[in-house]
């Protein structure tokens, strides 16, 4: 199994944001997998085994917090750092409460994203 430490899984239902994040992280040299929904995310993650998961809190039809809890409940997946992103007020507390390791408010500085991801990978 290749070293997936620098591989980042990004989940967002907004394609513009998804593409933006992908571009930024690729610029920084990370390998990126994008996903537009939360469907089967635990299995997906288990198969992909990314170094970091970045996901929006609220996707149409899915609550990132519940998914995050499911990930963290799975002993094989719990080790993968989760960075959650949202523009919603109070999202930070709720996401961290759901087990997310990091949180970034929208809109954000690109540097903040880089710092956070680097921190998550090196943790």
């Amino acid at each position: 199994m290749p070293d997936q430490t620098n591989h980042i899984l990004i989940i967002d239902d907004n394609e513009d944001i998804l593409f933006m994040l992908q571009t930024m992280l690729q610029i920084k040299g990370y390998s990126v997998t994008i996903k537009k929904n939360m469907d089967n995310l635990p299995e997906y993650s288990a198969a992909l085994s990314p170094g970091v998961i970045i996901m929006d809190m609220l996707l149409s039809g899915a609550d990132g917090r519940e998914v995050c809890r499911a990930l963290k409940a799975d002993t094989t997946l719990a080790r993968i750092p989760v960075v959650m992103i949202s523009a919603h007020p109070n999202a930070r507390e709720e996401c961290l409460a759901a087990g997310a390791n990091y949180f970034i408010y929208k809109p954000f500085e690109m540097m903040d994203l880089f710092n956070t991801v680097a921190q998550a990978i090196n943790a």
């Binding site: 907004n14 513009d16 944001i17 933006m20 994040l21 930024m24 523009a87 929208k106 809109p107 954000f108 690109m110």
Partner: peptide
């Protein structure tokens, strides 16, 4: 915030 996030990004 969502469009601004995009624009800013």
């Amino acid at each position: 915030k969502t469009p601004i996030t995009s624009i800013k990004g």
